[in-house]
Every structure is written in C-alpha cells, then in structure tokens.
Design a protein around this nucleic acid. Structure first.
Lengths: 217, 217
DNA sequence: ATCAGAGTCAATCAGCTGATTGATTTATTT
DNA sequence: AAATAAATCAATCAGCTGATTGACTCTGAT
C-alpha cells in the first residue's frame, strides 16, 4: 500500500498526540472489541468502559450517549479500512492489474488476519440500514472505495490492460458487487475468484503477455 | 416458479391446518415484522406479543425462550425464500439461461417488493456469525441455493448454453459471490449485472443465436 | 356434571441498562 | 499559592427486559 496515500486526518485519528484523543481512541477500540465479540445486540456501555479500564461515567464524559460512541466506532472503522491492507502483490508491469490484485490481497488479508474488521463492518452495515448517522459514514467509506476502483478501471482501459468492449460502469458494478459478495459469501475461494476475474477483465493482449511471462521456455 | 418444486413441509409451515401451528406462525410473522422494523438489537418479546395481539406469557407458551423464537424466525425465513420468487422470465429456449435469469428476477423482486425479506435475511446472517443454532439454519438455506445453482451450471455446460472453458467450481463461486454481493451492494444496477453476467457465462454459439433472435430482419 | 389439559392473561420478579449526580482528584493557568 | 478547568469515580435513578407465577377460561372426553 502506498503509505503516502494515507490522508493526514486518518493518521491523527489512529495515532493521536493529545491525551484526550488518545483516551477517546482507547474507548473506541474497546467498543470495537465489544461489538466484534457480541455484536450491537450485546453492546453495553458498562462492558466497553470495563474493557477500557474506565468508569462508565468516564465513558459518558467522552461520548455523551451510546449513539455518539457508535458513530465514533463507525469513523474508527473507516480510518482502519484506509490504513489496513494486505501485502502488496508482486509487480506485474501493469499498474491497473497490480491495483486489482491489491483488492483481492486486501480481502484475503482481512479474512486471514483481521476477521473482526469484517465482522464489525458487517454489523455497522446492517445498523446503517436503520441508523442514518451510521449510514452516512458507511456510504462515505463506500464512496471512496468506489472512486478508487473507478480510477483503476479508467486507467486500466486507457492503457489497454483491461478489455475495452465493456462499458466502464458495467465493469465497475460487477467488480464492486463481486468484491462485496466476497465479504459475506466467505473467504475461501478468493483465489478462484481472482483468477476468473482477471481472465474476464484483462485484454487479450495483456493475457497473452502474462502467459508468455509464465512460460519463458 | 415451478410450484411443484415447493416441498410439502414448506407448505405446512406457511399454511398450517391446526390452530396451534397457526398461532405459532402468527407470532413468527410478528417477530419478522419486529426484526424488520428495528433489528435484533431492538427485538423485544413484549413488542412481538403486542404485534401479534397476544400477552407476553402466551408468547412464552409457544416459544419458551427468546432464542426459540429467533430460531423459529430463521426457519420461517427459510420457508419464505423457498416460496417467494420474482416473475418467471420469458422462455429463451435455453433452460439453463431461463434458470439464470430467474435468479436475477428474484433479486429484483426482493428489492422491489420484499425489501424486508432481505433485511431480516441480513440480520439473521449477521446473528448467525455468533449464534450456532441460527447459523445451522442459514447454512442449510445457503446449501440448497448453492445446489440449485450447481445443477444449473452443470446442465448449462452440458447443453452447450454456458461456455465450457471455465471450470464448474469457478463458475459457481463467481455466480454465488456475485448474487450474494447484489444483496448488500444495492438493488440498482441489477440489469447491468445481468447483462454482463450473461455475456460472460453464455457460449458464443448461444450468444449469436440470441442476437439473431433479437434482430430477425 | 366432572375432570384434564391446552391456552390465555394480569401481575410480578430479579436483574440489567443508559444515563446522571455530586464529590474528589489532577493538571493548567494566573 | 490560588483559581479554574478537565477528568474520574462510586453511587444512584428510572425505566426496561426476559421470564415466571397463579388464577381463569374454554374444549373435549368420561
């Protein structure tokens, strides 16, 4: 992951300088653990405070209401997803392809190393269906992700790495739906999906060049 | 939808004869409404009983614990998904293609006419991550769906309707992930996805024949 | 008519839940 | 040193929550 791409506000969010923000973050991490453990259904302010080693009243000092805590958690998750990524795939010589492979690498990484991130994401997603405040944050997150993929596709088609006989929007819809599906359909078979997706999205020219690279003879 | 495919147990489930099962179902429908309205987080036995026009104690007579009610709800949802389908697509002359189009028709129908079904399904899916009893029912549901798709693919490839240069398992994985993704990625753009999917999965022969049918000239 | 069992409900229980209060401590400024 | 603000906690509140109890009704069998 290109570290320089991580925005400033995000670093400040996850590595605050002042004590106030640090303790705030401590509480959010506790809330994250609590939700990962027992979902929103089982989320209790007392449990969060206890996990953070703090009195309940202190929690309410930082987050006046439970709702404030939950909104804070949504923002915490957003920052997390911007920072946490899977290992960078080996350069293929085609930037768009590398970018695509990064998406699958991320998915693999989340399933293998950060399953709770996916769990809490799912919880917040469901809650967002009824909670407009949470929904706003989740949609913002989704928007940035979508925008990144859109740039990838545009670059991929322009550079001849991706096929040019499919409309950008259709390519984008399919990719987003597919990557979203991975999160709920299960983490096994990501390798299969990656192979099929590449076979579908890459231009014939690039596919042939990649095949030649694999068997130099 | 082929009505004869609906199993007997499912009919009995949704149209019970005896009073006991009928009232049981009444309570489950109330539970469904309650979860659709405010999620599991806001599910209260009192609210369910009230929605069903019944005393709380009566609810506990039919469902000794809240957990029993939730497990019942999971089974109710399972029966619902077996019975409720979108309109049958116009016959294309290719059974496998019709079957595929039915999947997209279902998705469209759920989004347009039964959004609460998707909502409760999502809620139960998330709960299943922590509730083994619910998970069992959800996995059973998923298994039948997967099996149906597997048969479709097998038949599609054997009859030359689907392309034969992709492994069955890969085709299945992609299709399941894609259809799962639709549920969370949003109901707009299903048309786009259907078009792209057909372009991807159909054999060249069938694609040409379909194009000829569209422009008979 | 009597009895047994299924079904229903008002009332209640013990414990939990989000939030508040008021006192106390800690850090910063004047 | 004194004053002000920030931070923390034990104790408490009012209301909710899942579940139980015991009394009452209805139905069908004896």
């Amino acid at each position: 992951m290109d570290e320089s791409q991580i925005p400033e506000w995000c670093k400040h969010w996850l590595e605050p300088r002042d004590d106030h923000s640090r303790k705030r973050l401590l509480l959010l991490r506790a809330a994250f653990d609590a939700v990962a453990e027992s979902g929103f259904e089982g989320l209790r302010t007392r449990a969060v405070a206890s996990l953070a080693g703090v009195n309940v009243a202190t929690l309410h000092y930082y987050f006046p209401t439970k709702q404030d805590l939950i909104q804070g958690l949504a923002q915490y998750l957003q920052a997390k997803f911007i920072v946490v990524h899977g290992p960078k795939p080996a350069p293929s010589g085609f930037p768009a392809l590398d970018r695509l492979r990064q998406e699958f690498s991320d998915s693999r990484y989340y399933f293998a190393c950060e399953p709770r991130l996916l769990l809490v994401n799912l919880e917040l997603g469901v809650r967002g269906k009824r909670d407009p405040e949470v929904q706003r944050v989740m949609e913002e997150m989704h928007f940035h992700w979508r925008q990144g993929l859109e740039e990838m596709i545009q670059e991929g088609i322009a550079s001849g790495v991706f096929r040019n006989d499919i409309a950008r929007q259709e390519m984008l819809s399919l990719l987003i739906t597919l990557l979203s599906g991975i999160v709920i359909a299960g983490g096994d078979r990501i390798g299969e999906l990656e192979r099929v997706t590449e076979a579908w999205i890459l231009s014939d020219k690039v596919k042939k060049r990649l095949a030649r690279q694999r068997e130099p003879k």
